[in-house]
Design a protein around this nucleic acid. Sequence first.
DNA 1: AAGAGCTTCAACCGCGGACAT
DNA 2: TATGTCCGCGGTTGAAGCTCT
Length: 500
Amino acid sequence: MIEPPPPFSPPSKEGEEERAKKVGRRPRLNPHTLDCDPSRSPLRTDTEASVGRNAFLGVEMGRHSCCYKQKLRKGLWSPEEDEKLLKHITKYGHGCWSSVPKQAGLQRCGKSCRLRWINYLRPDLKRGTFSQEEEDLIIEVHAVLGNRWSQIAAQLPGRTDNEIKNFWNSCIKKKLRQRGIDPTTHKPLAETQQGGDDKVPANGGRSISGATDLGLPSSAALNPSIPKSARSVMQMVDKFAGESSNPKNSATTGAPQFLLDRFVASQDSTSSCRSSNSPGFFPLPQSSYASDCGGNRTASVGLAVTPNPLLWFNHGSQLVDSNPEFSCCSAMSTLLPSASGSALSTWMGLKPVMDNPPPSCAGISSYWEAANCSSSSGSSGNTGGGIELQSNSSYFDNGIFPWPDLPPDRDAPIQLQGEPEDLKWSEYLHGAFPASAAIQNQSQPLYGDIKTESQFMVDGLSTCYLNQQAQQQQQQQQQQQASNIYGKDFQSVSVAFEQI
DNA sequence: AAGAGCTTCAACCGCGGACAT
DNA sequence: TATGTCCGCGGTTGAAGCTCT
């Protein structure tokens, strides 16, 4: 039984209002999807796009190749365009993006369609303000990943890289500076200014040095007495070094070293805190960002804030198996439980493998895969780590999204903070775009190789924000999903992993 | 009331990687 | 191996809306 996607939450006016309220302004009126009443719209209508970036453009330097063939629209999307794209992708999946506009009857390039879908129309998008937990998580993950927005976004279900990037640039940066923290280095501004280089740390762009933060020697990673599991981390670091040579990754060059430092530190100093089957706990300094974020918050996820001076990450230990190499990966997942899927697999070139993930790690395992799925759902496989959710006749034979048959809880959007403004997909189908309702009964794929969007990411990290009971329920669901959806992939990847 | 300046964020641009031929 | 195509990512742009004077 394939789980249906989460209910579609179209961009909601209330969400915008909430966001606007937070930033102290009136809600921005977006006539495209927030409100289709053009009388409210200060923006141009579909036929008014004649100036600036909203104009029809012909061939232009730098345009994507698919844009050369015909005059294509640019600029803001009209409600009609949105509806066309939404209907098309909902019905057929996006397949090859370059063919989407043609198939959907849009005068857009595939790239633009992809962007619109990913950033605005995707059913699993969460709208509204960023919660404090999300904000903290962004900061923490940014400290490790740098400006890898897509990977950061993978840690925040329902958020897009663009959204996070904008949020970072417009809000978080400012906040951090106000707190005396350099948003680039995540170090105190005074320190970075003294160093004379407030943009790029002297260690080659390392955002955070765990050893430094902990007052530990960064050379600890080179300690010959470190256990095998830590050495395998070093191997991963070595592997990462290749990637870090890429200038684009310079901002995060030190992340694995940072992980390694902490791993070693944990091996050295936390033995009394370790469980028998856990390779290590990772002490992290108290988030310096949490100071004015309402001190009582206690997040249940690794990269979140805690009132304690040190964060101790315990992933439940059942994830760890007897294979020290794997244990090492598990340890990494402990440190970065949410980053493990996309980030770590990218860093390390490894994928987590569990043939039969135990309940305790079902959420993680499904997340790992789901994160990749999410981040590369539109990919043609070039990420190497993602699992493509190819369209399957079984998906379509019964209708793409058979939500009317869902039990009530299936219709409840998974929300971090509870956002009542989020419309349910079924409501949406009968609301903003009534014509879309017919989609449910139409289901002949156009392509032989369609990447349907009907399987959006399993909401792995959201468990961090749910209460424990809901968390357990969701983990069970995720386990079920993981075993159902990715069972074959687990098996195949498992074989591959054994060869490592 | 007007407009300058600022903020927000949707969308574009260009690059690099993966893949096909 | 070379070339072309496609995709995804991160940086940037600029319109819309807000605040301040």
